[in-house]
Computed example of a mutant assay.
Amino acid sequence: MVRKEIYVFLLAYNLLRSLMWDAGTTYTTPPLRLSLQGTRHHLINFIPKLLAATSTKRLRVYRTLLKVIAHKAVPDRPGRSEPRVRKRRSKAYPLMTKPRHELRKQLQTA
């Protein structure tokens, strides 16, 4: 039973990734910049429209879905390195004793 659930999750994940790939390549948006959760929300909203549409109209609704997915790209966020320190956890990293922005500067200069 657990194996079936894992297979269903993998199937859903691959469906979303294939939608993102199709939307990205169709509308020249990098597929890795598209939001997985945004794609999931858009697909859930479009499922009733896809089911209610006739076969000739379904392709138009699908293309609209791809367009909506492609135009919701996640912005590029450069410089996302985080210092490896612990705040109040028992990990093998030193305690965070300085503000995060100072530690980022220290990492970038090192």
Results as ranks from 00 to 15, higher is better:
L15S: 08
Y93C: 04
G79V: 05
D76V: 15
K98G: 01
V74A: 03
Q37V: 09
K98T: 07
H42T: 10
F46N: 05
A52F: 04
L51K: 14
R63N: 12
E102G: 02
T39Q: 01
A73N: 01
G38E: 04
R58S: 10
V61D: 02
P48L: 03
I6F: 04
K98W: 05
K4Q: 12
R3V: 09
G24C: 04
R88K: 15
R100E: 14
L11Q: 14
G24H: 01
P30H: 08
R33Q: 07
R88V: 07
S55D: 13
K57V: 10
T29K: 11
T109L: 13
T25I: 07
L66D: 00
P31I: 05
T29P: 00
R80W: 07
T56R: 08
L19Y: 06
Y7P: 00
R100D: 11
R60N: 03
T29V: 15
R88H: 14
L15K: 12
T26R: 15
K72Y: 02
L65W: 04
L15Y: 06
T109E: 15
R84Y: 11
F9Q: 14
E102A: 09
L10H: 11
Y13V: 03
R40C: 04
L32W: 07
V2P: 06
V74E: 09
T64N: 12
T64M: 10
T39V: 03
Y93P: 00
I6W: 03
R58W: 04
P83I: 03
M20H: 00
R86T: 15
P30Q: 05
L43F: 15
H42S: 14
K4G: 06
P30C: 03
R80F: 11
L19M: 08
K87P: 01
L66G: 02
P30A: 08
L59D: 13
R3M: 07
S81V: 14
T25E: 10
V8E: 11
L11H: 12
L51W: 07
D76I: 14
V68Y: 02
P94M: 06
H42R: 14
V2E: 14
A52M: 06
K49D: 09
L103R: 11
L34M: 01
R84T: 07
R104I: 15
L10F: 07
L50I: 08
T39D: 01
G79C: 05
I47T: 10
L103C: 05
P94V: 04
G79E: 11
L36G: 02
V68L: 08
S18M: 08
T54Q: 05
R63K: 13
T29I: 07
T109W: 06
R77S: 09
Q37H: 13
V68Q: 05
D76H: 13
H101F: 14
F9K: 15
S35G: 05
V8T: 08
H71Y: 11
A52E: 12
K49G: 01
R60Y: 09
P83W: 04
E5S: 10
Y7K: 15
Q108Y: 12
A23P: 04
K72I: 00
R86H: 05
R88Y: 12
T28W: 10
T25D: 04
G38N: 08
R3W: 06
R77Y: 11
I47E: 08
T109A: 15
K57T: 13
L43R: 01
L59R: 13
L95N: 05
T39L: 02
V2G: 14
L95Q: 11
T29C: 10
F46G: 00
V61T: 09
I47F: 09
D76S: 11
